[in-house]
């Protein structure tokens, strides 16, 4: 098998396993996995920018929140059904990421990280400030009856699981395909050596702009999906913590790998789930993981596997 065929087989195999898991897992873990899949979609989006393009954003929660509020408020206040509301969420995230990209991409390195952090912080504060419509800190709940597509209730566990899986699978396949095309190759070129890529005649700015918009829109899709599937929209999802999470997930799973984001989310989700049963200071785990990853395993789980045993992993 050549490289591309192998990676297609890997991704389709992964999706097949996830389909089977949907039927065999007990309800509790099935619910968890649905949540993991939506968050992994968020991580897949983050990975496009951080893992492949080499741009470290500390503000992705604003794109997640843009999708979430765009979709949630369209349903809650606008009375739209799921599909059009979801599209509105996507448009919100895409528009926000385009604006942020045009400004933030004028900076590089540490300045880029801080600019994205500040933009995300102002989005978070705006969500609090407009509490009359957004519900502020408390957020709002989307009515159960409206959360259905063509008669299929998204509140029903198995339907919800497959909706989450569809969202994740689409994001995974789109990014995997993108990285095989020349656009994705140029992004990796930008990550490895921006100057040389520019010298070779590629328009680096336009590729970075594309990366931010694709990354932000996928993150927004995850946010909109979260609102629809779990029925809650709140400012917590716009806070700094939700900008740090995707960084942690992608670092843990393996930056610049297609399946790393899912592995990272699943690992961290169960670790935090377990830790929160023991202590209320469960974020300690996240802190320790970040420090240990920085010190000892920059490549993450899938990255280490690729470095040691399976060099063809996409």
């Amino acid at each position: 098998m050549n490289l591309d065929a192998r990676s297609v087989a890997l991704h389709l195999g992964l999706i097949a396993v996830l389909i089977v898991l949907g039927f065999v897992l007990p309800t509790y873990h099935q619910g968890n996995l649905a949540r993991i899949l939506v968050l992994a979609t968020y991580a897949v989006g983050y990975n496009v920018l951080f893992g492949y393009t080499g741009l470290l954003s500390l503000g992705h929660a604003m794109f997640f929140a843009a999708g979430m509020y765009g979709c949630g408020m369209a349903m809650h206040l606008g009375g739209l059904t799921v599909i059009p509301a979801f599209v509105i969420g996507l448009i919100c995230a895409a528009a926000l990421s385009a604006v942020v990209a045009l400004l933030a991409l004028r900076t590089i390195g540490v300045a880029f990280m801080i600019v994205t952090l500040m933009f995300a912080q102002s989005v978070y504060l705006t969500a609090l400030y407009l509490g009359e419509w957004t519900g502020g800190d408390e957020g709002f709940v989307i009515a159960q009856a409206t959360r259905q597509i063509a008669g299929y209730a998204l509140t029903e566990p198995l339907t919800r699981y497959f909706a989450a899986l569809t969202l994740f699978a689409v994001a995974l396949l789109i990014t995997a395909r993108m990285m095989q095309m020349s656009f994705g190759r140029v992004l990796i070129g930008v990550r490895e050596n921006e100057e040389r890529t520019r010298m070779l005649g590629y328009d680096v700015f336009r590729h970075k702009l594309g990366a931010v918009i694709i990354s932000g829109t996928i993150a927004g899709a995850a946010g909109a999906g979260y609102a629809v599937l779990f029925g809650y929209v709140g400012a917590t999802f716009a806070s700094v913590q939700y900008s740090i999470f995707p960084l942690l997930w992608v670092l843990l799973g393996g930056m610049g790998t297609t399946i790393g984001p899912l592995i990272g989310v699943a690992f961290m989700f169960y670790l935090i789930d377990y830790a929160s049963g023991v202590t209320n200071a469960y974020m300690l785990i996240a802190g320790a993981a970040l420090v240990l990853l920085t010190l000892f395993a920059r490549a993450g789980i899938v990255g280490e596997i690729r470095n040691r045993w399976v060099p063809w992993l996409p």
């Binding site: 670092l251 300690l284 802190g287 320790a288 993981a289 420090v291 240990l292 920085t294």
Partner: peptide, 14 residues
Amino acid sequence: IVGTIGVLYILQQS
């Protein structure tokens, strides 16, 4: 930056 984000959570949660 990534390392000190970790330290942030470690100190805060401790």
